[in-house]
């Protein structure tokens, strides 16, 4: 994005290295997300995509390198303090609170916000996800996979994040639901939410994203405009199966 490049990025990941014990999982990756963009991080299983997100949000600590949000170094800040700084992660595998109602799940999403503001955001979520309104009093664990995914996203949005990070939102969903989820991602983007999307479904991800990074075994091997990567031979061969 030429116009975006002139601004400073909302999120800047600078040459981070992450280890699980002796295993060198992330070997120095850098990426940037600008305001109002959808950036996607694609790659095979085990490439380090989720590790990257977990490091950004503070669940993991990089041994080297920095993560900057809005020009501020956020290394070493605990995950529980990231929400109030505007970072929200929808974790892989949904991770909704199974024993709480849909409404309670949403309320927990707004944990860091003053109680007075919650009602308004709840209303907003119920408008965006009418399905959740129908299920308001139901226990989270009884929702279908697609509904749970909607709930995770709505829960993350309840904190009014500046940057929403989605980790494999399409995982394990039927094709029709995958389309629905990507439809929602597009809508969110149109309403001004900045999104960092991690996906194995490269086809879909590249179609909604502005820019993309391709990860392989802890490194970024390619990057560029999503529309270009979508037609790139190497990407097509490796991830799009054609």
């Amino acid at each position: 994005m030429s116009e975006a490049n002139q601004k400073s990025p909302l999120l800047k990941v600078n040459d981070i290295h992450v280890y699980y014990g002796a295993i060198h999982a992330i070997k120095g990756i850098s990426l940037e997300v600008y305001d109002n963009e959808i950036v996607t991080l694609i790659g095979a299983n085990g490439a380090g995509k989720s590790t990257t997100l977990n490091t950004i949000v503070g669940l993991l600590r990089p041994r080297q390198g920095t993560v900057e949000l809005n020009g501020m170094n956020i290394n070493g800040i605990s995950a529980s303090k990231m929400v109030s700084r505007g970072l929200s992660l929808c974790p892989e595998g949904r991770r909704i609170f199974q024993q709480m109602t849909v409404r309670e799940n949403l309320e927990m999403g707004a944990y860091s916000r003053p109680a007075a503001e919650i009602a308004e955001s709840l209303e907003e979520m119920f408008q965006r996800f009418p399905r959740l309104k129908e299920r308001e009093k139901q226990i989270g664990g009884t929702l279908s996979g697609g509904e749970q995914q909607m709930l995770t996203m709505a829960r993350a949005l309840m904190s009014r994040p500046r940057l929403l990070m989605l980790d494999e939102p399409s995982m394990g969903l039927a094709p029709i639901l995958v389309e629905q989820i990507f439809e929602i991602i597009k809508e969110l983007h149109e309403s001004g939410v900045t999104i960092l999307l991690v996906e194995q479904n490269a086809q879909m991800a590249l179609q909604v994203a502005d820019r993309a990074y391709v990860m392989e075994t802890g490194l970024i091997t390619m990057q560029g405009r999503a529309s270009e990567l979508l037609h790139n031979d190497a990407v097509q061969k490796a991830y799009l199966g054609s």
Partner: peptide, 24 residues
């Protein structure tokens, strides 16, 4: 209560609770 609900969240899923802004 909010704190009570936070306890239930931590009991169910520590990582997800942390992502909500709850200090475990």
């Amino acid at each position: 209560t909010k704190l009570g609900k936070a306890m239930r969240c931590v009991s169910e899923d520590r990582g997800a609770a942390e992502l909500m802004g709850i200090s475990v």
